[in-house]
């Protein structure tokens, strides 16, 4: 466990020192600022109410969970695997007394922590923006539902990141992986629209699963089903990704 902890600390340190990670943070904040400006413009220009303080963070979440957060997941995963492989820096980690399994798991842990950090940041700033600029007060019950929505959104994002990690271990070039990931993402979204009856089975459909947690009557069966589907995808992506990572010749 101590070796895994070391590997995780190292991965988190590397991630925090990369410019890409900070660009992601700035972009996340920009989404909130632009979103709030649009709402203020709609309100003053058309006299519409826009959104209440409790609804603004959910509006932000619905936007980022299908756009910039999957993009960040792809960028960070590609950098961590394809990038290090191309720069030969993976070699200097793997020749230390640490197994490939621990390095692989630590890298995924760091990506998950990064996504959690992005969600926390988006939550804090969207709640603050909601409270400062929008009408109606935020109740504790609303606040709790918001926390839950942001937290449960981590799971489908991690599953998506695991899928991208699998791609990084299939194709060598980071650019190829990036385009493959975008193509696969768009294809799955289109498939979800065309075969709407089966859309829930696709890994991209679960990005919106936080909506299930907001229902007045908690849909236990649907939540369990979606959770198990994500778990299944996650396990398959993890195992296949690790198998290829373990076989990699550096």
């Amino acid at each position: 466990m101590a070796v895994f902890k070391t590997a995780l600390i190292n991965e988190v340190e590397k991630l925090s020192k990369k410019k890409k990670a900070w660009v992601a943070v700035i972009l996340s904040l920009a989404v909130i600022v632009v979103g709030q400006l649009v709402i203020l413009a709609v309100r003053s220009g058309f006299g519409l109410r826009g959104v209440g303080s409790g609804e603004f963070p959910l509006l932000v979440l619905s936007l980022v969970v299908n756009t910039i957060l999957p993009l960040f997941a792809a960028l960070v995963a590609i950098d961590s695997f394809s990038g290090e492989s191309a720069q030969n820096t993976l070699r200097i980690t793997l020749t230390r007394p640490v197994s490939r399994f621990k390095v692989f798991t630590a890298k995924i842990g760091a990506i998950a922590l990064f996504l959690l950090g992005a969600l926390v940041l988006l939550f804090v700033f969207s709640v603050l923006a909601g409270l400062l600029f929008n009408a109606s007060s935020l109740t504790w019950s609303d606040f709790f539902r918001l926390v839950l929505s942001f937290l449960v959104s981590l799971l489908p994002l991690v599953v998506l990141a695991l899928g991208i990690v699998l791609l990084t271990n299939v194709a060598r070039s980071g650019i190829t992986v990036f385009f493959l990931a975008i193509l696969a993402f768009l294809l799955l979204k289109v498939l979800g629209l065309v075969f709407s009856g089966y859309a829930d089975l696709l890994p991209t459909a679960q990005l919106d699963w936080y909506n299930l947690w907001l229902a007045d009557v908690f849909p236990v069966a649907a939540v369990v089903r979606q959770f198990l589907l994500m778990l299944g995808y996650g396990v398959m992506f993890f195992v296949a990704g690790f198998y290829l990572f373990d076989q990699k010749e550096l």
């Binding site: 340190e13 590397k14 020192k17 990369k18 030969n88 820096t89 070699r91 200097i92 020749t95």
Partner: peptide, 13 residues
């Protein structure tokens, strides 16, 4: 301790 093929390091650290 080893150094294989080329001496690599993380360029951003």
């Amino acid at each position: 301790g080893c150094m294989i093929e080329t001496a690599e390091s993380y360029p951003y650290l």
